[in-house]
Structure formats: C-alpha cells, structure tokens
Amino acid sequence: MYIVIAGGGIAGSSLAAELVNRKHDVVVVDRDREACEDVYAETGAVAVHGSATDVAVLKQAGIEKADVAIGAMYRDTDNLTFALLARSFGVPRLIVKMRDPAYTEAYRVAGVDAVCNMIEMFRHRVVAEIENPHIRVLTRLEGADAQLVMFAFPENRGSVRIRDLAQLPAFRQNCVFAGILRPGERTIVMPRGDDEVPPGATVFAVVTPGHLGAISAFLGEGTGPGDGA
C-alpha cells in the first residue's frame, strides 16, 4: 500500500520503519529537514521536507495516490488539518494520533477512520499494570467494552481442558478464550473444548475490563480492585 505519514518524530519514524519492513511504500512528511534526513537514513522511507498542512507539499508526497494517510504530528490542530486535506484528495483511509480528547468529535466530523487516543491508552495500560501486573492487555476492542489480554497459566496448576477451564468461576462469565501458545511451541492454537492448557502456557482471551480482577485472583498473582494488602 502507498502510505503517507505526517510527522517524522519518534511515533512517525518508528511507524515508518515498521511499515517499510512490511513492504509498504511509505512517504514521511516533516517540516524539520534534519528529521527528514534521519527518517530516510534509519528507515529507508522516502522523506519530504515541508509542512504536512501545505497542499503543494502533500502533492509532492503523492497524497493523491495514497491508500492511507496517517497524522502523527505533535499538535492535534496540525493532524486535523492534515486529515481534512487528505480527505479532500480522496484518500480512502485516515488514521491520526490524538493527544487531546477534546478533538474526538472534530476528528469524527473530519471523517477520520481510526483515532489513537494516547491519553486513554496510557491511562488504561497503567491502571491494568497496577491492578493486574501479570495480565497483559494487548488491545481494547473498538466499539465494545472488552479487551484482548494474555496471561501465563500458573506453573503450580495441572493441565486443564478448555471446556473445564471455562466452567471455573473466574472464567465462567464475560470471558472468551481466543488462543493458546504452549511452552516450546511457536504456533498459537485456536482452542476447542478438548484442547488442554498445560502449566506455563500463554493464554489469550477476550474479557470485559471489570473481569480482570477475578482472573488475577485465579492466577494467584496481582491485586484486583479493592484487594487491600
């Protein structure tokens, strides 16, 4: 895909490197000439020097043929302007990094397809790490009160079938098992009822946020909300 990224800072350059590694055609636009030179040297992505809110610069970056446009600049005002311009050029998919939640509605009106709310992501990750340090939240499911999480099945418990695990109080409600990565293996198994979860296996599950405390209690690790020492 042809992807234009507005902003060659830490977020934009690291994203460019990942997308180039995945064989996408990437162009990064930044008003800082040194940042452009660094992006090209470190990622191999094409770098265009100039403002991503300037129509002429965007045309130079090939915005008219872009499949995806990504706003990764520091200020929401710049990302919003970039998104509006990209949409006017007919870019089919717009993604932005949002710092200030006050811009949520503005991005929606601008037709942005996906908004990465940095403050919300930070808040949820920190709270999860404090209350349930041995459960890793991988992502929140957009439009649903649910999260994809992973955790290590305790070494001090014997192997258990998925169907039996699902009947335990900690997993009986608001939890769907999505995958099992057994020790020493590299392939995630999509679990069925008779599949076994051995000690030390990594388990992937979709759960509601309020259910993490119950899973932590089962694991014998972490401190769910309200569990004082």
Rank of each mutant, 00 (worst) to 15 (best):
A69T: 03
V27E: 01
D30W: 12
T53A: 15
G71W: 09
G44Y: 06
D76H: 02
K59A: 07
H49A: 03
D25C: 09
Y40L: 08
M73N: 00
E64H: 11
V39P: 02
A69E: 05
G62R: 06
A41T: 03
Y74Q: 13
D32Y: 06
V20R: 04
H24F: 09
G50C: 08
E42D: 07
I63P: 13
Y74H: 13
V27P: 05
L58K: 08
T43F: 01
Y40S: 07
V28P: 12
A35T: 12
V57S: 10
A56T: 03
A41L: 08
A61Q: 12
A45C: 01
D54L: 09
D38M: 15
G62F: 02
T53K: 08
V26L: 12
A41C: 00
V48K: 00
D76T: 13
K23M: 04
C36R: 10
R22G: 15
E37A: 04
T53C: 07
K65N: 10
A56K: 10
K23T: 10
A16G: 10
C36N: 09
D67F: 01
D38L: 14
T43Q: 03
H49T: 10
M73L: 03
V57W: 00
V48T: 12
R33D: 03
D32V: 09
V68F: 03
V46F: 00
A45W: 00
E34Q: 05
V57E: 06
V26H: 10
D25E: 13
V29S: 08
Q60R: 07
L58D: 10
R33Q: 05
Y40V: 05
V55L: 08
V68W: 04
I63D: 05
L19Y: 06
A69D: 01
G44E: 01
E34S: 09
E64G: 05
A56L: 09
D30Q: 07
Y40K: 14
D30E: 11
A47N: 08
A52F: 02
E34K: 04
D38N: 10
K23C: 06
E18W: 13
Y40P: 05
T77K: 06
K59L: 04
A16F: 06
A52M: 00
R33W: 02
A66F: 13
E18G: 01
C36L: 06
H24M: 10
K65I: 07
R31L: 05
K65W: 14
A61V: 04
A35R: 09
A69I: 05
I70L: 12
A66E: 11
I70R: 01
R75V: 07
N21R: 11
R31F: 00
H49F: 02
M73F: 03
L80P: 07
K65T: 08
D54P: 15
Y74P: 04
V28K: 05
A47W: 06
L58I: 15
A56E: 13
V28A: 12
Q60K: 05
E64W: 01
D67K: 11
A41N: 13
Q60Y: 06
K65A: 15
V68Q: 14
K59V: 14
V46M: 14
G44A: 12
D32R: 13
L80T: 04
L58E: 08
V28L: 03
Y74R: 15
N79Q: 15
N21I: 02
Y40N: 02
V26P: 06
V68C: 10
R75A: 15
V20N: 14
R31W: 04
